[in-house]
Every structure is written in structure tokens, then in C-alpha cells.
Amino acid sequence: MRHILTPLDFKTQELDALFDLAADIEANPQKYANACRGKKLATLFYEPSTRTRLSTETAMLNLGGSTMGFSDATSSSVSKGESVADTIRTVSCFADIAAIRHPKEGAAMVATQVSRIPIINCGDGGHQHPTQTLTDMFTIRSLMGRLNHMTIGLCGDLKFGRTVHSLIDAMSRYEGIRFVFISPKELRIPEYIFERLDEHDIQYDEFIKLEDVIGKLDILYMTRVQRERFFNEEDYVRLKDFYVLNKRIMRKAKNNMFVLHPLPRVNEISVEVDNDPRAAYFRQVQYGVYARMALILTLLGIHVNEDGTVTQTPVE
């Protein structure tokens, strides 16, 4: 049984294969239109999410499968006090694969301990969000043509931003990656990530002002300051508009830099940047569907042959 809890659950060679598959899906969508016929995806979303849930469901629908589930905890047995483990034990009897999002960190790991079907972690609190990472990596690979030798700037909420943590973990494994962390002091990267980077001798810098460093970046990964991660509303209000990427700041960036964002965007990227060819955050959404399609096929062990016929092998 194969699950995905963090991007590190896949070796870099496995990720290469997954991204090759995603690229083939992008080029030949019809070939994969019936790959998951008869398969069911359960989406277990304990907290609201439009984009990730719809993207994951779209991925399964594009593969000819079907979907079911709940989109917030109040409309499920969770509201009656059911544990994550019991919900997964039950859903294992209905579906072939499950995608779970939960506000508590480590919830997806609990799911994998009892599940009889592959589990996709679609976000566990402020901890990990591997399918977003696959989306981000496939976007970077598609735009840059590579995943190594580049400077990646991460800007905004680096403390609670799970997409940031996952992306750092995943990109740290490629040669010649340098990170630039841009955040207010209150939203710095957690200490454990610094420890990991130091342990592996990965280069990084820290900045507070985006203008001071944007000219050195190949990728700028913007993030939203998320209200739901704060216990204190006052802190949220003070920090939510700390960064606003606009045309003026973009003028200092390289011509071949790309701006990514896990979305939804609020004020941190001005709409005036949307038409800049370097603004790649809406293309990123489309790449996300291909990456999730490739992930579903990989976890289910489904291989699509050139003629569109399907073979399925158990995944260890």
C-alpha cells in the first residue's frame, strides 16, 4: 500500500517518473480519459477548501473515475464525534483511494495507520501539503525545464505556510538549490526546517524586505497570511498586508523569473501583476490537475498503455 503524507515519501527518481507521466497526461489527455473507470475517490475534507478539493476531484473525473465525500466536518459523522481512524476504516470499505484534509497536524498519518486504501494528504493543519508541492514542482519543471540549480524565494507566512514547508523539503533534494526566506520576524520558518537545511548543508538566506532580494530569484513563491492559523486576531490584522507584490517591485525582478502562489490570493499580489508573463499562478492551477492525475494513477498502480488500455499492479 502506498500513501503520500509528505513529498519525501517519493524518491526523486519516482518524482521524475510521476512528472513525466503528468507531462504525458498534459500532452495526451484523451489517452487517460478512462484510466480509472469504475474507481472511486473519497474526498474527506474536515475544513473548507475549494481549490484542492475541486482539483483532486477533477483529476479523478478526468481519469474516468467517480468521487464522493464531504467538504466540511459539520456535514459528516465527525460532527457526532467520530475519530479520524474510525472514519477511514469505514471509508476504506467504500472507496478505492481517499484524499484527506484536516485542521490538525498529523491527521493524515493517523489515517494511514488504519487504512486499507491509499491515502492522499491534502493538507494537515500547518504541517504538510504534498499535493500542492507536486503541483508547485511540476509547474517549476514545466516552466524552467529543470528542478535543480536555481534560487527559490519564499515570501509571506513561512511559519504556518504548510505549502512552503513541503516545497522546501522536496526541493532540498535537488542539486544547486538555494532558498531565500522573506518574512516578518513573527512568521519566520520553523526551527526544525533550519535544522534540516543545516544538516544537509543547503544554502539559504533570510530577508524581511522583498525589494532587497527579488532581483536574485529564479522563482518567487508568494503565500497568503492565513487567518485560520492565528489564535490572536490582532496579530493577523497586523501582519496580513505585510507584503504586496506590485508592478513596481516586479520591475526589479529578472525577466525570466516566475511568480507562483498556492492560491487563493488576497492582497499579497496586486491584480496589476496578473497580466505580467512572469505571473504563473493561474497556469499553476492547471498543472496541479495533471500532477494529481499522475499521483492517483501512481498510488493505484494503474498503467495506461499507448493504445489507452489499462493494466493495474499492486503497489508496495
Binding site: V84, H102, K104, M109, G126, E195, E199
Partner: peptide
Amino acid sequence: NPRCITTIEQGIQHIFYLADTRSNI
């Protein structure tokens, strides 16, 4: 960590791993 699943999930194993042998974290 108040955000950890172990604070609400019943019947769970509480597992910690040695992350840093130099500082025993």
C-alpha cells in the same frame, strides 16, 4: 502542540523520533 492530531484523537500511539543526536532533540 495544541494543533497536533494527538490532542484529540482517541486510542492513538504517541510516537517521538530522535531528530538531532547532537542536541538530543
